[in-house]
Design a protein around this nucleic acid. Structure first.
Lengths: 247, 247
DNA sequence: CAGTGGTCTAGACCACTCG
DNA sequence: GAGTGGTCTAGACCACTGA
């Protein structure tokens, strides 16, 4: 009776380490400060470097740390709140927002996207690449898939290229009446290309936001946005989103 | 010109492994099928077990695999779409939904939650625990924090305990006029207690959904829901959510 | 009990950043 | 070139599952 479940749950070392480090971060370190390097931390705690790294990985996943090869491990600032479902339904690129069109190419979308669009697998569609920045840092990379039949007016002005062409596709989209949209959020790992744009290593954890745009009962476009999971908190909702960001 | 960037990006072994395995999963394995064990897979690919595990971890993160200690590694079914922002604004527990009240205790919320509630740090609040299941599987565990002043009528019926008390708190909440709500989604790792309820190991990646409920301009309650990131895709939006789930 | 995934070690070398 | 984090190895033992 006196013994309260002692040792029935032997806590893994890396878990305990993570707790200790987390508390140290709260009390002894300032945002942006550089931690001792991994070899020294491991020695200080009397564990192998791999074990120490397991703890650091968790803390990075939780947005507490930021690690950069060749530089070091720093204390991360609180996550940035980025509005995803802000305000009314609208086509992408409608207002002066934090997105920036990069370019536009003609390519076959992933099978999952083709399924959402209702286009045959392998059929190329307009693919607009955009990047989103807040406070100068890149937070998201997006691929917007637009089947040719959604923007019939585009054929005549097909000559533009790069960012100009991307903006043209966005402008053509806005001629359509948007009847609704849909979102899904899931965990993923960054493709090599997205990772580069987001200044992360391939495989870094990301939040995938899939948005469907509806017109006349059909899916006119699908966007897949890749948000840095370590630095972002996605905010939804109509009221006072900015309050949560202060957390 | 003939050489197309050969070896300028030496791909890590685990990354290549992940690709190979991913393609094998698509073509050679059925959902639920058990893969060869880690030691054999590592030998088959000629890598150390740790390297093989790094690839498996990524695939699990992406929801492609499911690993269970003492059992084996199985091919995961596609992620389940779970509605988070469904339909109109409503208090939790209003309709017959997929949530199940577990119990209710009086405890001091985490500092971040106290900040959102506007209550002094350390002040205990009603804390309702709920669990959400779909297809029999637990997908989320939630803690709903309700300050005493949000449910003044509760004092008189303070005698109930456990699930009954939880339901009482939910019922009292519904007497208030809900003026709005707010959501944020971010990546986290499962606390030990949540992990147990979700049938995962501590530290497993989860999607944290923070919801604020507003009445009369103030925050009447805050919910923090912990969704299994490996098995769940969170869906938002007003129309045809179920179509995305078919993806 | 045998077999699985989970944890941990003590090394080694590589890729990157920056002075 | 020195120092950092990233990758990789070849072992060992532990915790858990199920027959």
């Amino acid at each position: 009776m006196g013994t309260t479940q002692l040792d029935t749950v032997p806590e893994p070392k890396y878990w305990h380490l993570k707790t200790v480090l987390s508390e140290a971060l709260d009390s002894e370190f300032a945002v942006g400060e550089i931690l001792p390097n991994e070899r020294e931390l491991a020695a200080r705690f009397g564990v192998a470097r791999a074990t120490l790294r397991q703890a650091l990985e968790q803390l990075e996943l939780e947005g507490r740390l930021q690690r950069r090869r060749g530089v070091g491990t720093t204390v991360a600032p609180p996550r940035v709140g980025v509005a995803v479902g802000d305000a009314e339904q609208a086509w992408p690129g409608t207002t002066a927002d934090s997105w920036q069109a990069v370019d536009c190419l003609e390519a076959a979308p992933p099978a999952a996207v083709a399924r959402l669009l209702g286009t045959p697998a392998g059929r190329p569609v307009h693919t607009v690449r955009r990047i989103r920045r807040t406070h100068g840092q890149p937070v998201a990379a997006e691929l917007l898939y637009v089947p040719g039949h959604s923007v019939p007016g585009l054929a005549a002005i097909d000559t533009a290229s790069g960012a100009a062409r991307a903006r043209t596709v966005l402008r053509e989209l806005q001629r359509l009446a948007l009847e609704g949209q849909d979102r899904a959020v899931e965990l993923g790992s960054a493709r090599a290309e997205d990772a580069k744009q987001l200044d992360r290593l391939p495989g870094a954890p990301v939040l995938l936001v899939t948005t469907r745009y509806f017109t006349e009962g059909a899916t006119a476009a699908v966007a897949v946005a890749t948000y840095r999971a370590d630095t972002c908190r996605l905010t939804f909702g109509e009221t006072g989103v900015q309050l949560l960001a202060a957390g």
